[in-house]
Amino acid sequence: MIIDSQLASFFTAAALIIIGLYAALFLDNIIKKIIGLAFIGDGANLFIITMGYKAGGIVYIFLPDMTVNWFAQNASYPLPFALVLTSIVIGASTLAVMLALVIVLYKKYGSIKASKILGAKQNQETENSIKGDGL
């Protein structure tokens, strides 16, 4: 092995976050921006999972033939896995809402360019009236 697998995962996480930031900053296509955001979230999740990794560790399930001491020394750290599961669910739901909004805005503008839909000019309409009773 050229590089320790935990270290490699950390580098991958860093790369994912940097690529995501690049995409969010420089790409004009909103879908591509959102893919970049998913990269950032995945990078953060990968980082947390990697922290729970233990070289040669076992899954943290206590089987009858294990002694408590042996288990405490060899089991990997379970907390990060539980956290990541929650974090992935949150990420998926925000992603779904974002993509739904993109669909609605695409129908309205016929474009998914951030500079066109979410640029300064569309939103500087100071006129801010509401329709009906607003709901």
Partner: peptide
């Protein structure tokens, strides 16, 4: 400090 997404992200980063 306009409302354009790109400038907001730029200042944020």
């Amino acid at each position: 400090q306009n409302d354009s997404l790109n400038s907001m992200i730029f200042y944020m980063i």
